[in-house]
Design a protein around this nucleic acid. Structure first.
Lengths: 385, 385
DNA sequence: ATGAAAGCGCTAACAG
DNA sequence: CTGTTAGCGCTTTCAT
């Protein structure tokens, strides 16, 4: 697949050995812990003494000659403070390089200015587009977004759900692995949540895509284009989106009667597309066109087609879900069912913001967005030769 | 660019209006706060009373008839407890559905089991591959990874650096926007850090790629292939990787004498590649081959070439950095300089783990990984027509 | 091995 | 408007 010219990497052994975990503090001297300034003689961190000590709110208070409460009020602007004192506080804070401890604040306030977005695959452009949507609206509201990659792994998913709970994030946007994903703890901690891309067996806000409709349109298009044995390569059986896209395919096929129903399940990855295509094409009476459930799989399909010397658009019609950045550059340009990924993210963040602020109605809201069929060349039937 | 069949999305207005922020608690009744069980008469959450109340360590302690300290010790396994009591504690904890409050724990322990990975572009496959590397080793060490997308925006970067500090993450892996990115606060908070992809003007661990070497090899390859006016489309001038790749190009060009030095800077995006190519090709004496500094830009180059009716591999030679998943499927297959992205992440995580555990030497370590030239078709010179 | 008590650093009632 | 006081929920000495 190309000439390789050079290579040289190495992954070093774990130089750490099996030593017991040690705290963050560098192990320099004996076990004696650093002593914090407490005697009035210390007089605060004056001048250029670049101590590694962390400045706390009380240091600032002392330096500014006010109470910690006033420092807090000044810096948070929640209550009015005498301008003179406020100035003194700000001055002291910046002189000392004070940085509020977010953990302490969170503990006290019980919320953070952070929200978590848990997706099933960072390397899928569909999800990164969603991410952008989420980020844009979150940022406009002054919140940060922490991305968590659950990788279609229930274990990782629950770990991240746990992290979100532990860290007391303001809200969670989740693309659940399965409808049964356990979010009870989040609910119990009353952390607002919005589900995207796939449904959840819980009464929560959601933003979904009419996948089935898109799949049906894609399959119909394949048939209209003159392909006579369209098949479907969809995601794993336990993924709702995979089922829906398969359903859409089946609906279309059934509308036309006479057609065989041909489909396989495979992981939502390039490798999955490859093996799925292989299984289908190895059948006694193989399909002449493929509706593929995601762009990463589509790449695998192209790979397998190439391996077999099948010309896409001639020997094999192909259309896929997701308008990845590369779709119009492959040969031939790939027809797709585009999902409004950015909007999914933006809408979900909207809904979440409303929950966070408490301005949302109690009943869960469900948004359904539509797909868009973009016909390029891979799905058209070009005469052989 | 394709026939569009249907579309229908909408982005609802901000239904929230401009109401002041309200805490997470649903605003149901008056201002009276929920009262916590404190009277001995309450007797703990027996039976099916599914209270929305959050269970705290003291509830578990009471339920198990031990002290909070014992509960903590049991659940953290840091000190030995009587097996009988331990069993009782565990039983009580699970019966009550106790979930330790991570924020409180972090405040006390001053660390979290989470590390932050700050990258400049989630939608760049190079960075998602890095992410996988980081995740794999972090997970094997029992840590979770929070991904932060700084988007080449110094503001966002510093926000995330701030979040990382606030949340007291165990460590940070950063792909800095500029060498001058301000990480002083992290250092002051003694949060371990590893820099990837680009250097930082600070004595910290780093994992980098010999970009310049790769760029030089790519350019030399273009020249060897028979192209006579190779040009370079690199990233923004303030990005180190962009400079290095340009340098590599220049080195190669200079080695050959006689050749003009042709290059432009542009954002590391598809759009950037497009405009960069346009500028270069619009010149009086345009190049006949392009060395592109990243895969997303390369897509833009393909777009521009198509727009102008230039045949890649015939009228225009192209080679790019990064072996994105689609590179071998575009037409013609794209030659690339592959970076060991996964390894960058894995190695960085390794280094970070050692710092977190305190088993690393004090002096910063610098790892340099090599690229790999993969020659496909886009860079070969095929006779016209 | 266990419990009591002392905070981690901050914010929010509550008086003044 | 400001300071005092009381925790947020947990872990960890320090005694026992």
């Amino acid at each position: 697949m190309g000439t390789v010219r050079s290579a040289s990497n190495r992954l070093p052994d774990d130089a750490a050995g099996k030593a017991a975990p040690i705290g963050r503090t560098a192990v320099v001297g004996s076990g004696a812990r650093t002593v914090r300034a407490s005697s009035p003689l210390e007089g605060g961190a004056r001048g250029g003494r670049s101590a590694a000590e962390v400045v706390k709110i009380n240091d600032v208070a002392r330096e500014a000659g006010v109470s910690a409460a006033t420092v807090s009020r000044t810096l948070n602007g929640r209550s009015s403070v005498d301008p003179v004192l406020a100035a003194r506080v700000r001055e002291a804070a910046s002189r000392l390089g004070y940085r509020p401890n977010g953990v302490a604040r969170s503990l006290r306030r019980q919320v953070t200015d952070v929200l978590a977005l848990i997706i099933t695959d960072v390397s899928n452009p569909f999800f990164t587009a969603i991410t952008r949507g989420v980020e844009d609206v979150a940022q406009s509201r002054g919140l940060s977004v922490l991305l968590c990659n659950s990788d279609e792994d229930p274990g990782k998913e629950s770990t991240y759900l746990h992290v979100a709970e532990q860290e007391q994030v303001a809200g969670v946007i989740l693309s659940p692995h399965r409808a049964g994903s356990d979010v009870a703890h989040l609910r119990r901690a009353s952390i607002p949540m919005v589900v995207i891309d796939r449904p959840l067996d819980e009464p929560v806000d959601s933003v979904m895509v009419r996948s089935r409709e898109g799949a049906r349109a894609a399959t119909n298009h394949l048939i209209d284009a003159g392909w006579t044995r369209p098949a479907c390569i969809t995601g794993p059986g336990d993924a709702w989106t995979a089922q829906e896209r398969l359903e859409g395919y089946l609906e279309a096929v059934r509308e036309h009667g006479e057609l065989d129903e041909l489909w396989v399940h495979a992981p939502f990855r390039q490798q999955g597309g490859m093996s799925g295509a292989a299984r289908l094409l190895d059948a006694p009476d193989p399909p002449d066109a493929l509706f593929v459930a995601n762009a990463q799989m589509a790449l695998g399909v192209l790979e397998e087609a190439r391996r077999r010397g099948l010309r896409v658009g001639v020997d094999l019609g192909v259309i896929t879900f997701d308008d990845a950045p590369w779709t119009s550059f492959v040969s031939p340009p790939m027809s797709v069912v585009a999902q409004p990924a950015y909007d999914i993210g933006a809408q979900a963040a909207q809904l979440l913001m409303e929950r966070v602020k408490g301005t949302a109605p109690e009943a869960p809201r469900h948004l359904w967005l539509s797909t868009m069929l973009i016909v390029r060349e891979s799905s058209r039937r070009h005469g052989p030769g």
